[in-house]
């Protein structure tokens, strides 16, 4: 029987793992990759918030807000890159992004 804190941590960890798997199991769409990335940030910031409440420390919440900001700007830049990429290649399939292979 899991206790309350452990189950919450497990939930967030599962979210983290799901988003991580979503990063590299997906082969088609780069949008999904970006969404997984957002979920990664979400799980991390949720973790921070839970920890700050659990430890009764404000720093975690400050971090969470910072992460929120960074994630927003990052997804804005990512989407911008995606748009530029789509304009050039007319596709956003991840499979075809192998021009830099060794």
């Amino acid at each position: 029987m899991l206790n309350f804190y452990t189950s919450i941590i497990t939930t967030f960890f599962c979210l983290f793992l799901v988003s991580l798997l979503g990063m590299f199991l997906n082969k088609k769409n780069i949008l999904i990759m970006l969404m997984s990335l957002e979920m990664l940030f979400l799980s991390a910031s949720s973790f921070f918030i839970f920890s700050s409440i659990y430890l009764d420390d404000i720093t975690g919440q400050i971090f969470a807000i910072l992460i929120l900001t960074v994630a927003a700007s990052e997804s804005a830049i990512g989407l911008a890159i995606l748009v530029i990429y789509y304009r050039i290649r007319s596709t956003i399939s991840v499979e075809l992004m192998d021009l830099m292979k060794g």
């Binding site: 991580l20 990063m23 590299f24 199991l25 997906n26 082969k27 992004m97 192998d98 292979k101 060794g102």
Partner: peptide, 16 residues
Amino acid sequence: NLLQSGQLSHYTFLFV
């Protein structure tokens, strides 16, 4: 060299 396949998902996997 073969490890560097150009596939983003492979890179992510290796990174993790």
